[in-house]
Structures are given as C-alpha cells and as structure tokens.
Simulated assay, not measured.
Amino acid sequence: MERKRPMGIALIGSFYIFGSIVLLLSLFVYELPFEKYGIAARLGLPNVPEHLARFLVGASSLVMAYGYLKLKRWGYWLMVAYSIYFLTVSGYLFILYKDQPFLGNIIWSLIVIAYSYSKRSHFYMKPQQIRVGG
C-alpha cells in the first residue's frame, strides 16, 4: 500500500525550513530592535552568544526539517525530541515571565508533537512504500 506525505508534515517541515532560513539570514543583522527575547533565551541558553545560537538552531533546523519532510525515522525523532525540549523550556519560561512568545511556543510544540505522533506510521514505512507528493 502506497501512501503520500501528509499535508501536515509538509506544512510543519516547511515552517521549520522557512524559520531556519530567516534565522540564518538574521545573522547579518546586528540587532533586531523588535525582538524582546533572542533565540538563545527562548531555548533556555541565555549564556550562549546570540549569533552562535542563531547559527546552530538555524542549521540544525534545516537538517531536522529535511529528515522530517523526507519521512526519515531520524527526522521524526529529532522533531519530537526538539519539540519536547522546546515545550519544556517554554513552559518553564512562561511560568517565570508570563510572556506571549513562550505561550505561543508551548502551543506550537504541542501541535507538532501531537500531529507527528498521529502520523508516526509514515516514518516507519519502507522507502518503496512512500510516494512523496502528488
């Protein structure tokens, strides 16, 4: 039985690719004046330099999203692990600061975890059973 990639997986993977490209492009901007919390703070790593955090998160998100979009098991597990970590850190920071970016991160992480779990069978199919697109 052939299955194609679910639209939700395509959307989640595309959001992560878009976000990682924006993060990598933001390396060329010295400081973003509208951003109250940097990516390092959002990940619970306030002592990590912001540009290093942006590069590492942007590059690793590209790899993670590629594996997720290609329905690779490692892409699924990286996405789930990252989402659980992001959920945990955002939950802690939301309790600490009661600020919107952390609540939005909590909601997004829950959506990604729940949807990925509901479609986990797509990541465990043999490559010849997967039809991407169309």
Rank of each mutant, 00 (worst) to 15 (best):
E2N: 13
R3Y: 10
R3K: 12
R3N: 10
R3A: 07
P6N: 12
M7Y: 12
G8F: 05
I9H: 05
L11W: 09
L11I: 15
L11K: 08
L11V: 14
F15N: 14
Y16I: 03
Y16N: 02
Y16Q: 07
I17H: 10
S20I: 09
I21N: 07
V22F: 10
L23Q: 11
L23M: 11
L24F: 07
L24N: 13
L25Q: 14
F28H: 12
V29H: 04
V29G: 06
Y30H: 14
Y30P: 05
E31P: 04
L32Q: 10
L32S: 03
L32C: 00
F34C: 05
E35Y: 02
Y37T: 00
G38C: 05
I39Y: 02
A40V: 05
A40N: 15
A40T: 09
A40S: 14
A41R: 07
R42P: 00
G44Q: 06
L45G: 01
P46C: 05
P46V: 00
N47T: 13
V48E: 00
E50T: 02
H51L: 08
H51F: 09
L52G: 05
L52A: 12
A53D: 04
R54T: 02
R54C: 02
L56E: 07
V57Q: 06
G58V: 06
A59N: 10
S60C: 08
S60M: 14
S60E: 15
S61A: 12
L62I: 11
L62K: 06
A65C: 11
Y66L: 13
Y66G: 01
G67E: 06
G67Q: 07
G67A: 09
K70I: 00
K70N: 06
L71C: 11
K72F: 05
K72P: 03
K72Q: 14
W74S: 15
G75P: 02
L78Y: 08
M79Q: 12
A81Y: 12
Y85A: 13
F86Q: 11
L87D: 08
T88M: 12
T88L: 13
L93I: 07
F94Q: 03
I95F: 13
I95G: 08
I95L: 15
L96I: 13
Y97N: 11
K98A: 11
D99S: 13
Q100A: 13
Q100G: 04
P101V: 02
P101H: 13
F102D: 04
L103V: 03
G104P: 03
G104V: 04
N105E: 11
I106M: 14
W108G: 00
W108L: 15
S109A: 15
S109K: 04
L110G: 15
I111N: 01
V112L: 04
V112D: 01
A114G: 06
A114Q: 06
A114C: 05
Y115K: 01
S118L: 02
S118A: 13
R120E: 09
S121M: 01
H122I: 05
H122V: 02
F123M: 00
Y124C: 05
K126Q: 08
P127E: 09
P127I: 06
Q128N: 07
Q128M: 01
Q129I: 01
I130M: 10
R131C: 01
G133K: 08
G134R: 12
G134I: 07
